[in-house]
C-alpha cells in the first residue's frame, strides 16, 4: 500500500476484509462470498456518507449477483460529473479482479480498454492479486475506480472530451449555468 495517500489508506482500513475464496461457479460458497461483499459495500457506503464523500451507487442487477450496475460521480471545479457504472463478476473471481466499465466514456480516453473497461493494470491489479481473497467489490471501487476518476475526469473535462450535462443540454445557456453550478 506504499504510494497511497493517507485518506485512501484510512478509508480502506474501515472496509471489512473478505475471507471466502469463492466465485460465481461455487454454489453455496458464492452465496457466502456475496454476503461478505454486501457487508463490505454497506460499511464502505456508510463511511463515505459519514465523511460527506458519497460518490457511487451500486447494486446487483441479477439474482445470482454476477452483474452489478449503478453510477459514480466526481466533483471537479465545483461541478458534479456523473457516469453510469457496470461490471460482471468474472468466472475466475476472486483470483481476477472485476473489470469495471464506464460505458459512456468508451472512446474518450486511451486509459480504457474496448467497451469502456477502465485500465487498472498497473496500480490496482497487482494490489488485488496480493490481497486475494481479502479484497472485494468495495475495495475495487475504493482502490481502482476512485483513483481512476480522480486522475482522468479533470483531464477529460479540461480537454473538452467530457462536458457537464448542463452545458450539453443548452449550450446557449452555458455561461449562465456555469455561474450557478455547484457541487450537488
Amino acid at each position: 500500500m506504499e504510494g497511497w495517500d493517507k485518506g485512501t489508506k484510512s478509508v480502506v482500513g474501515e472496509i471489512p476484509l473478505l475471507s471466502t475464496r469463492a466465485g460465481p461457479r461455487d454454489g453455496e460458497a458464492w452465496r457466502q462470498r456475496l454476503k461478505e461483499e454486501y457487508r463490505a459495500l454497506i460499511a464502505y457506503t456508510s463511511v463515505n456518507k459519514s465523511k460527506d464523500n458519497d460518490w457511487f451507487r451500486i447494486s446487483a442487477a441479477n439474482p445470482e449477483g454476477t452483474r452489478w450496475e449503478g453510477s459514480c460521480w466526481y466533483v471537479h471545479n465545483l461541478r458534479r460529473y456523473e457516469f453510469p457504472l457496470q461490471f460482471d463478476i468474472p468466472v475466475a473471481y476472486p483470483q481476477v479482479a472485476p473489470e469495471i466499465e464506464l460505458p459512456t466514456l468508451d472512446g474518450k480516453t486511451h486509459k480504457m480498454y474496448r467497451g469502456g473497461k477502465i485500465c487498472l493494470t498497473v496500480h490496482f491489479k497487482p494490489l488485488w492479486a496480493k490481497n486475494c481473497p481479502r479484497f472485494g467489490i468495495a475495495h475495487a471501487l475504493c482502490l481502482g475506480l476512485a483513483p481512476w476518476l480522480a486522475a482522468e475526469v479533470p483531464i477529460l473535462v479540461d480537454s473538452g472530451m467530457v462536458k457537464h450535462k448542463d452545458d450539453e443540454a443548452a449550450p446557449a445557456d452555458a455561461a449562465a449555468a456555469s455561474g450557478s453550478a455547484a457541487a450537488s
Binding site: Y38, L41, T45, S59
Partner: peptide
C-alpha cells in the same frame, strides 16, 4: 449472529443506503 444474516436482508440494507 453475523453469519446468519440473510442475503436478502443485506441487499435491503444496501438498497436503503443507496436511496438515502
Amino acid at each position: 449472529a453475523i453469519d446468519d444474516d440473510d442475503l436478502e436482508e443485506l441487499q435491503r440494507q444496501l438498497d436503503a443506503l443507496n436511496s438515502s
